[in-house]
Amino acid sequence: MSHERLEHHEAEATDRAMFGFWLYLMTDLLMFAILFGVYAVLHGNAIGGEEGRHLFSLPLALTETLLLLTSSFTCGLGMIAARLGKKKQVLTWFGVTFVLGLAFLLLEIDEFVKLIDEGQTPQLNAFMSSFFTLLGTHGLHITIGLLWIAATLGYIMKRGLNHHMVRKLAMLSLFWHFLDIVWIFIFTIVYMGAFV
């Protein structure tokens, strides 16, 4: 098989893989749709507990939003570097993304721990159940994203930046941008919505 045809075959495979990953993201979006729908229906049922505006801190939520937004931005810059084949820049930008994502995750865990300490557990009422499940699912995705960044960066350090790695990074950055978009709605509906 000629080199050119092999390359064409690879390009088609990449195109298909990216499309497939996009379809996966759509299924993820639908899973979040259920969680948002459930939250929208149940958030008023804060039986035996506090309502959102007595529990949430807007400045904290804003900090989390900015962390995630910035990480989405640095992830995009890392992707540009990856397409240009600049390994060192890729490691730096995705490293920054990792740190920002980790900071976000720690803030979220801290918020969860504080809520549970106050007795606002997921078992308390429907509002808390839907809140913890929605944010927990997003947090779980962030955790998976962080693991993924770590694994990819590890392989890049070991094997260098070949086209397989660029494909992995492209999927990773789609995933990360997607999580940021989901967070916009969590910030808007859950946090700011509680103060309306």
Binding site: A11, T65, F73, M79, F187, M192
Partner: peptide, 28 residues
């Protein structure tokens, strides 16, 4: 065949970032 042109430039990412910041701060 290549996916070359579908990707952003630094400029597009900066514009997106700034606009997103604006859309975060106004409702806040």
């Amino acid at each position: 065949h290549g996916p070359q042109n579908e990707h952003g430039t630094v400029q597009s990412y900066v514009i997106g970032f700034v606009l997103s910041l604006i859309c975060t701060f106004i409702p806040y």
